[in-house]
Design a binder for these strands. Structure first.
Length: 396
DNA sequence: TCTGGGGTCCTAGGACCC
DNA sequence: TCTGGGGTCCTAGGACCC
């Protein structure tokens, strides 16, 4: 008995089709077969996901919701329900892990899988991909598309070409024939800014990019990105599928329907965000040394102010004290469009404690009690007294 | 058309240290 | 006394992803 040879295309990229829309359809079957747009419903919302019926009218992700309403007024507009997506996502990833532990999630609805270990059970990686699609369809009633290729970069491009509800394999040996005709904008890592630079070099396709001398590319987009893009354009990608590691930051932010002008209201919103971030830190057993305050003004200029402490914070009250110090360093005479609170330099909680900053051991007990009530009765069950009836948004 | 929320990674300057 | 070089950390901003 000899082992079968290794798969020549061992990397899968699995991407759920219109994930938020399909989850909402499971919940409300009247959404099936009609145009659906999931997104913030206020005037400042954007499209988080749209059904294929709505895409035919030009609606797409990240589009302002007011524009979507103009293009497709007959669509059903649904507010996102993140908890629902998280729950279904866990089931989807459960299906992935029933095939292989080598799963690297990219977001709630897509992942890379290294299926090279399954060659005794399936004739080809393509067969594994089909089996995964069927398993997700059968167990969760959801459509998924799969790209199969020799590396991550190609697998991701392939799954996009396979949509909706399909599978595409890029056979080993035909990588460049698949890759080079594609528009360069479709490369992972080429966004608006980099695309504009590449356009200036006369680059339209990935094949064009492959023809640009490395030195020229590095000169225009920087050394690191230049080398990265140059290699990818030659289908050269040896990044392994690395199972998900620890989070590097935790944050909460909100764009307000009306800009905030009253300091007390700004502080109240920041306190609420500190509660959210602190709660998530403690749930994850983490604390963070670096606290960041984020503000966006009406003209969309965005600033951050941050401070690093010698030890980690995971008590909401300490977080808020830090944020208030940062708030003293920003201009609050201008209206505020967005506020955010973030924590990074994360470490396992329970290490050396932050002293000073008004903290006291009693706040640990308060936080623990609040977390317990939230766990039993829900996130909204407990809020600081000052959030119970917020002051008006406007000073006028 | 007027731009969400939650993330990751990179760059660049300055402080600080040896 | 007209001044090196490297490493690491911090801060702020920005590109990019879904």
């Amino acid at each position: 008995m000899t082992d079968p040879p290794p798969f020549t295309e061992p990397i899968l990229h699995v991407d759920m089709d219109a994930f938020f829309v399909e989850v909402e359809r499971l919940h409300d079957p009247s959404l099936v077969g009609v145009p659906v747009v999931v997104g913030g419903l206020g005037n400042r919302g954007v499209v988080a996901a749209s059904s294929y019926e709505a895409r035919r009218y030009g609606v797409h992700s990240a589009m302002p919701i007011v524009q979507a309403r103009r293009l497709c007024p007959q669509a059903r507009y649904v507010a996102p329900t993140q908890g629902r997506y998280r729950a279904v996502s866990e089931e989807v990833f459960g299906v992935f892990r029933s095939f292989t532990p080598r799963v690297e999630g990219l977001s709630v609805d897509e992942a890379f899988l290294d299926v090279s270990g399954l060659r005794l059970h399936y004739p080809t990686a393509t067969a594994v991909g089909q089996a995964i699609r069927e398993a997700i369809r059968t167990a969760l009633l959801l459509p998924a598309s799969v790209g199969v290729a020799s590396n991550k970069f190609l697998a991701k491009l392939a799954s996009e070409n396979a949509k909706p509800d399909g599978l595409l394999t890029v056979p080993a040996g035909s990588e460049l024939a698949f890759l080079h005709p594609l528009p360069v904008r479709r490369m992972w890592g080429v966004g608006e800014a980099t695309y504009a630079t590449l356009e200036g070099l006369g680059v339209a396709t990935i094949g064009d990019l492959a023809g640009v001398p490395l030195a020229t590319l590095e000169g225009r987009v920087g050394r690191s990105l230049g080398q990265h893009l140059h290699r990818l354009a030659l289908a050269d990608d040896d990044r392994p599928v690395s199972p998900d590691g620890e989070a590097k930051s935790i944050s909460s932010e909100q764009t307000f329907e009306c800009d905030l002008t009253v300091r007390e209201r700004i502080e109240a919103e920041l306190l609420r965000q500190c509660e959210r971030v602190g709660s998530q830190l403690r749930r994850s057993g983490l604390s963070g040394r670096t606290v960041t305050l984020k503000l966006r003004y009406p003209d969309f200029t965005t600033i951050t102010r941050s401070h690093s402490f010698d030890s980690g914070i995971d008590v909401s009250h300490d977080l808020y004290a830090a944020v208030r110090q940062l708030l003293a360093r920003v201009d609050l005479k201008r209206p505020v469009r967005l506020l955010g609170v973030g924590v990074s330099s994360l470490e396992k909680a329970g290490g050396p404690r932050q002293l000073g900053l008004n903290r006291s051991a009693a706040w640990d007990d308060v936080s623990a009690a609040i977390d317990e009530v939230r766990a039993r009765f829900g996130e909204e069950a407990v809020a600081p007294a000052r959030l119970a009836s917020p002051p008006p948004a406007h000073s006028d």
